[in-house]
């Protein structure tokens, strides 16, 4: 029924949607991959930490008096900034605490032990969320301008939309990822992180405070989850205490897809997942979303077991 032109239209629209949705997944996936890269722990509570991040933003915005809609032009940037910084601090601190209490004592234990304690922390977070915002989904205030660049700035009538919300998400997510890459590559702490990732015993012999480095890694992961929390809330205007499970699963998949432990891989994996999901929904239908995504994961892992950018288990 739709002609060839409309198909390209749909395809481009799916690409834009996929990139924005992929940005959330990528930010959460970074938290998985950072921790895995350093201590080879799959931190299953990370998705739920992100959920608590959305709650921290919601509570902050409510306290500041922005629980209801604000129209175009009325975006309270200072409140958004405050909510984001608070959520980042909150999630970062919580993640560091979780590491100190639930993972550090088990560092020398068999691998499965910290994995189970991570699942335990995940349950604690979920129930904390349940206690905090209740069992029903909560509406997140719609505070960003409703502006579509494609139709309103360029006057084009197409299916492709690039709204201010998309710009907001990408404009925040991409600099955060670049900043993370810079920290890892160029700072003393980043160098120490890489050293601990390669050989923590040797690093400790060389005078690196391994515990401090690991805490710092959890802090970084938490900060990214907190930022993702604000973006998710403002973008989807909805949050619920069960959000973390699906988000965590998707992000974990993205991290594995990109090569777990590899920072650029996690970001790439997130975008690939978001794009694939949007394309599958557009051309095959919503019920094929998970099937498509996980089929791709299986195919990639069969041909490249270390993921897209992974380098094998030796390091």
């Amino acid at each position: 029924m739709p002609c060839g032109g409309a198909r390209i239209d749909l395809f481009l629209a799916a690409i834009v949607i996929g990139i924005t949705n992929g940005a959330f997944i990528a930010l959460i996936a970074l938290g998985y991959t950072l921790v895995y890269g350093i201590i080879e722990l799959i931190n299953f509570s990370h998705g739920d930490l992100f959920m608590l991040g959305t709650f921290a933003c919601l509570t902050t915005l409510t306290l500041l008096g922005f629980a209801t809609e604000v129209g175009i032009g009325g975006t309270p940037w200072w409140a958004l900034l405050a909510a984001m910084l608070l959520a980042m601090a909150f999630c970062g601190t919580l993640n560091v605490l979780a590491e100190r209490i639930a993972y550090r004592p088990l560092r020398k234990a068999p691998r499965l032990a910290p994995l189970i304690s991570a699942i335990g922390v995940s349950f604690i977070y979920v129930n904390l969320g349940l206690l905090w915002q209740g069992p029903t989904p909560r509406r997140f205030p719609d505070l960003l301008p409703q502006y579509d660049f494609v139709s309103q700035m360029f006057g084009l009538e197409t299916l492709v939309r690039f709204t201010f919300k998309d710009l907001f998400v990408l404009g925040l997510a991409i600099p955060l990822m670049l900043a993370l890459a810079w920290v890892i590559r160029n700072t003393r702490m980043g160098k120490a992180m890489r050293a601990v990732a390669q050989d923590s015993e040797m690093a400790s012999q060389m005078g690196i405070d391994v515990n401090r480095v690991i805490s710092f890694t959890f802090l970084l992961g938490g900060i990214l989850a907190g930022a993702a929390g604000l973006m998710y809330g403002l973008y989807n205007n909805n949050t619920v205490f069960t959000l973390g499970f699906d988000a965590g699963l998707k992000a974990f998949t993205a991290a594995v897809l990109g090569g777990i432990g590899n920072v650029s891989g996690a970001a790439l994996g997130g975008f690939v997942l978001g794009l694939l999901s949007a394309i599958v929904i557009t051309f095959l239908g919503g019920q094929w979303d998970s099937v498509g995504v996980f089929s791709l994961l299986v195919i990639i892992l069969v041909f490249k077991p270390t993921g897209l950018l992974g380098q094998g288990a030796s390091d």
Binding site: A13, G18, D246
Partner: peptide, 15 residues
């Protein structure tokens, strides 16, 4: 079509 629970439905909305 069937649509699983999702964070957003922008691709479906476009369709």
């Amino acid at each position: 079509e069937g649509a699983d629970k999702a964070d957003n439905y922008r691709a479906l909305a476009n369709k």
